[in-house]
């Protein structure tokens, strides 16, 4: 099991965390103006890179706070972690 460095609690075991998928997916600023295709993109489509991926994690069995991590999906290795605010995402607040 790998250790994930929670920005607030430090390194903890992976099973304390839950995955939140791609980071920086902002809610549409003018939802009423979206076409069906644009809604489909927002609701269903997420990036799926083989390599570094910016994603959200929650320390759900610890401090219960969300943070953003960049992780390499080839090796599953975490490249960096940071608080949500610092990464500019308001998607989960």
């Amino acid at each position: 099991m790998q250790l994930i460095a929670c920005p607030w609690c430090g390194p903890r075991e992976e099973l304390e965390f839950s995955y939140g998928g791609q980071a920086h997916v902002a809610y549409p600023s003018d939802p009423a103006a979206l076409t069906d295709e644009q809604w489909a993109r927002f609701v269903f489509f997420r990036d799926n890179p083989k390599g570094p991926f910016a994603e959200r994690w929650a320390h759900s069995a610890g401090c219960r706070r969300w943070f953003t991590a960049v992780r390499d999906t080839r090796t599953h290795r975490f490249l960096s972690v940071g608080p949500l605010a610092a990464s500019g995402s308001g998607a989960t607040s």
């Binding site: 992976e14 099973l15 839950s18 995955y19 083989k50 080839r74 090796t75």
Partner: peptide, 13 residues
Amino acid sequence: DTYNGYGQRGAFH
């Protein structure tokens, strides 16, 4: 495994 991954391995838990 809950996270995206191309690594052909997963977590022990």
